[in-house]
Design a protein around this nucleic acid. Structure first.
Lengths: 310, 310
DNA sequence: TATATTTGCATAAGTACTTATATAATTTAT
DNA sequence: ATAAATTATATAAGTACTTATGCAAATATA
């Protein structure tokens, strides 16, 4: 029973690791059976030294795309087996040039035919009628270089957030998301509860708009555009703390700007608080600039006013 | 510059490991970006517990084909994150049943959509027009189960040993291999040198035969069939100590038996020494049985005589 | 020409496993 | 019923790397 099979692509990393370890173990066993004091993990470094005659630690690291400490450790291991010799560079005293010892050269001669056989066998082992597993890995590495998996996943996660219009069934989410935000950063003022519990009368009936961010059938963020004398006010923006990192605030903001432009408005404004640095940064990033705040602001927490010209 | 590419199939294990580590790192980064206290290495164990509701350490180990200490360590890690709870089994006090804690169940709910997206993205990432890398790995794992790589390589190494007839250009090898063997196990008697230096007159001209084992254009072993009054004597068998583990002695022996049968001989015999246990074992294995040794044996070291009926 | 920065390598500690071994509970054999 | 073997898990140490950091030599900058 191998449950790892069931997990399919998600266990891909584990599966690959396991397969590579299995094959490494088998190759190790081959060396052991032939009474050769060698190890498959040493192969890349050893073979590189053999091919290049004389090469420095840093160069090996660059060649093999493994870290420099790893190379140092491999060289120590090769030194312990007396397979390589180290000669300090004449021009650069920091540098160490590694080359094969006599024992190392003798071992290469012995290993060469074995390597040849192993390569043939491995080629057959990983071959499929259509292509080789090695080729497949190479193409996958290319994918990674073109656009790392991390970026692909994050983009897809962000793309799967939908921005949707107000619906009364989300009234509860509107209230809860905002209350949670207020309780975390400030405290709930009487006027807050009044507005948040009655979005229909306070916002929508007054030609305002409310949007929601939905992820996986869950409401994870909200924002409102409220009709004020001067212009529309971007307000009531709240994102579920459970879904940080998904750039939900950014997407809600993008939606508001796009919507406002469609409506033909000249500008929108917002009130915020200077202590909310990440939020202020986002506002500035999309083009909001600071203007003096009036004296008779509706909420105590509002100590900054910003305007975006569309 | 990536020299690992040049090594092709030989660096296959390293390449796979590197790719799986790269992908693991990317997935780790995704969790981090989403502020999720989770790690891709925990996935197989965590998901198994989630799927099975309640499961013991040993069962997880069997399911995932990872060692039991690894499972114990993963569970410790999950316990530290308070994602699982451990309940001792009622019937078997050694057993520990692992199940998700409330926090763990909540995390599964949060992770499920992320996993879904990751799986889709990974599927696309490793897909080729012809097949998926995952499928390719699966088929390679099947190869390993059918016949492990170790056996394939060893068999090929053994198959690449050729048994060839005597040629005067190998006279030196015949001498050296035998001298080396004698010096290691006994000492060189005067008659030895005389025979080994003149195989033509002492063996071949007297209707004897000499065979060599060749590997990678190097003579790695030898054996002779010497015409004696009673019957042919298998003698002068020597294998290069550098090539132990390749079953060269076995192959030389097989050749001699096959050849003797072809010649229509009724039996062959050999002299040896009781201290050479591996050799004696080989002789017995192929069917030689012990007979009393004559008093006037040619060599001091001969304290056992064996016969094989063909 | 002194100082700051960079480079080449070493060392230390961490990670995700492994193998080897220990311990207690259970099952099997006598 | 007791001893011996087996099973379930834990612990310790090793491996093949990694990241983080340190140090000395070389190079760039003021």
């Amino acid at each position: 029973m191998d449950k790892l099979l069931e997990f399919r692509e998600l266990a891909f990393g584990s599966r690959m690791k396991r397969l590579s370890e299995t094959l490494m173990r088998d190759v190790k066993q081959v060396y052991k059976s032939l009474y050769l004091d060698f190890d498959p993990t040493l192969f890349p470094v050893f073979k590189t030294i053999s091919d290049e005659k004389s090469i420095s630690t840093g160069e090996i690291s660059e060649y093999l795309q493994i870290t420099q400490p790893a190379v140092t450790q491999f060289i120590n291991s090769l030194m312990k087996r007396e397979l390589v010799i180290i000669t300090p560079d004449i021009n650069d005293k920091r540098k160490k040039n590694i080359s094969l010892s006599e024992k190392g050269s003798a071992l290469v001669l012995k290993l060469d035919p074995i390597w040849k056989i192993m390569e043939e066998e491995l080629t057959a082992f990983i071959k499929r009628p259509d292509t080789s597993l090695m080729n497949h890995i190479r193409l996958t590495e290319q994918n990674q270089r073109d656009k790392p998996l991390y970026q692909r996943i994050m983009q897809r996660i962000r793309n799967s957030i939908e921005i949707i219009d107000y619906d009364s069934e989300y009234a509860k989410d509107f209230l809860e998301l905002n209350l949670e935000w207020l309780e975390t950063y400030f405290y709930v003022e009487p006027h807050d509860t009044e507005v948040l519990e009655n979005p229909q009368s306070y916002i929508l009936d007054n030609k305002g708009y409310i949007f929601f961010a939905r992820f996986n059938n869950e409401i994870v963020g909200t924002v409102a555009l409220i009709n004020e004398d001067e212009c529309y006010e971007l307000s009531k923006m709240a994102v579920s703390p459970k879904y940080r990192g998904m750039k939900i605030g950014q997407q809600l903001m993008d939606k508001c700007i796009e919507f406002s432009k469609q409506q033909g408005w000249e500008k929108i404004m917002l009130y915020s608080n200077r202590s909310l640095t990440p939020a202020i940064n986002l506002y500035r990033k999309v083009g909001f600039y600071e203007v003096p705040v009036e004296n008779e602001a509706l909420y105590e927490r509002a100590d900054i006013k910003m305007i975006l010209e569309l």
